[in-house]
Design a protein around this nucleic acid. Structure first.
Lengths: 196, 196, 196, 196
DNA sequence: GATGAATGAGCTTTCATTCAT
DNA sequence: AATGAATGAAAGCTCATTCAT
């Protein structure tokens, strides 16, 4: 089979698994579930991924790269720091709408199944693409004098914890307004927190 | 058997389950595991909780009340808003050290196993004790003119997302310094974000 | 406790168990179920019956004696043989309405749980009160020249198999008419089959 | 694996389960028992039948079709009505000897475990193959003037209740003679009951 | 590469019975 | 006589993974 066809099949597994994992959880989603969803046999699945855990880690890389890529575009724009914050917040919320599986996977599958992502994903290994871009954003902000110099993780925790928290509250349907409508206030809150 | 003894046994289950769930996850922790930990037979466990899910929900209530109680103490003190923020941050981080099970349970078990907490915990039902106190904190801050008036959930997402994020990063051992050492910067970031 | 009170409690258990067993089956009915139904503790139940199986056998005796008693009344009347057949059929169908638990117990619990009634109920031991009366009925019929002499069990199988079959079909709700309306045709069928 | 092989495995389960259920009852027979009997793993069993209940219903269909088929052969012969009655009685008793599992399953498992056959087997759905043939038998008998016209279920209850009753008494070992020896008297009793 | 039957350990839950009170 | 907490074996069912075809 051509390399291209194989890559296509692989991507199908990834996208199918992403949907199922994020909706039903890691343990509730079975390999037969995934195989059935994409019209593949169980046996053949194992020709693409050697185990369920390996698949879960690949998914993490996949999302981290996707997210990292989108932040990179923002980083590379010549917007002001505040505009970049707003762009990241808006991008994140837009993903909550358009690719909820990705955000859910990050929030629910990755953050909570430590035992699954244990070895091979120590520290920030599996999400480095994404973290790297966030680091660049902060460094740029500090360099240009817009942001206070501080421990990266304190700033990162604020930013991503905030966005994740809002995505969670949105998923729980406790927010009184649409997620979009919070972009302004959140941007403002983050900027006020981090600016010089 | 006295009601007192029964309540004591019940609490033993709760504390044992809390430790096991938060360490190993909901699905990886079995009822036999829990029973063995506290020296009880599997069958007898079911005389106290009718199912694993019911236990999980009770745990959530238990933690929510515990956390709510601690925040209430802070709310009722006559500290300034900024001091209260610092007290909440410090309390939270202290709990990450002294009662890591509770924080982990909130972050990993509750936030990620939607299917488990589905019915009976819609919206904020199961965590209302905790949320209520956070609402009071914000209302007080706004009333005394220290905090800007804004959508509660935007402020709440910032505060708790931030703290949860830091607890998570701490658990992943990616923080370069001890959690305590972040209390100042985090308090400052939160206060800057929310103040008038 | 007085002997009278004790007998009353015992009867309560019997009547409660009869209802539950006949509705839910022997294995589906638990001792806690029975105890709860009659407002007795599980432990106390065992002061009245030493095991679930012993209870089941007592129930059988109870019903057999009840049924035997009713047939005896018919046997002792001075009706003709055909009138007696009709009286038995009518009495049986009346019981299907008024004491369905008894009939159901006979048909469903006794006939199908051989392992339960195994020892102690070999052959007709546990239902002898009832069988004895049926034997008397046949003997009388033969003596007075109304019925052909034949193997008792062939006649008994016809009579009780027929009635049990109709009760079953009634329970399955497949009968197009009310059970009562079949009394005539069934009496006639039985009489034709057995008469000289 | 070929479809043929799969069907063969399926039949092995059916025959094995039939033996075990009819001997030990529905609840006393476990899936591990069945799997062990036919040399199959527990897990694989569930690749053939999705649950124990589904298996029980399939068994009923299987027997109903087998019995229906044998009655059909008799119906299609050009014997007289009385000869057909004798043929059905003889066939039934022959099955009590040669395939006791089937008769026992009908009498003990199906008739008594209503909750198991509840949905999906309402009324006569699961035994229609068998009932249909019995209906044909009666209709033919009435058409040719041998049998009186009467409610089908009254005649059916007599016929099958009688045979079932005798099979039961035989199983209980209370019959003084071999089952075969009753063929004549039973045929006669049934014919007398139903004839014009 | 592709299939899906097969494995079997392991899960949650049940329940007859006992026994300290 | 009465209570109900406690036991623990056993049930039905699941699922990651393998492997013959």
């Amino acid at each position: 089979m051509s390399t291209l066809k194989r890559l296509k099949r692989r991507e199908e597994i990834i996208e199918g698994a992403l949907k199922l994992f994020s909706k039903g959880g890691f343990y509730q989603t079975t390999i037969p579930d995934i195989a059935r969803t994409i019209g593949m046999s169980v046996g053949n699945f194992y020709n693409y991924f050697t185990s369920k855990e390996v698949l879960a880690k690949e998914l993490l890389l996949y999302i981290s790269e996707y997210l990292g890529e989108r932040i990179r575009t923002i980083n590379e724009s010549d917007a002001t720091t505040q505009e970049k914050i707003r762009a990241i917040v808006a991008m994140y919320f837009e993903m909550v709408q358009s690719r909820p599986e990705m955000i859910e996977y990050f929030l629910r599958i990755f953050l909570s199944n430590r035992e699954v992502f244990g070895e091979g994903c120590e520290g920030t290994v599996c999400v480095s693409a994404f973290i790297t871009e966030m680091m660049l954003f902060f460094d740029d902000g500090v360099s240009c004098g817009d942001l206070r110099e501080q421990d990266f993780f304190s700033a990162f925790g604020l930013f991503m914890g905030y966005l994740g928290g809002m995505a969670f509250l949105c998923g729980e349907k406790v927010l009184p307004h649409a997620l979009d409508s919070y972009v302004d206030s959140i941007t403002q809150n983050i900027y006020r927190a981090l600016k010089t």
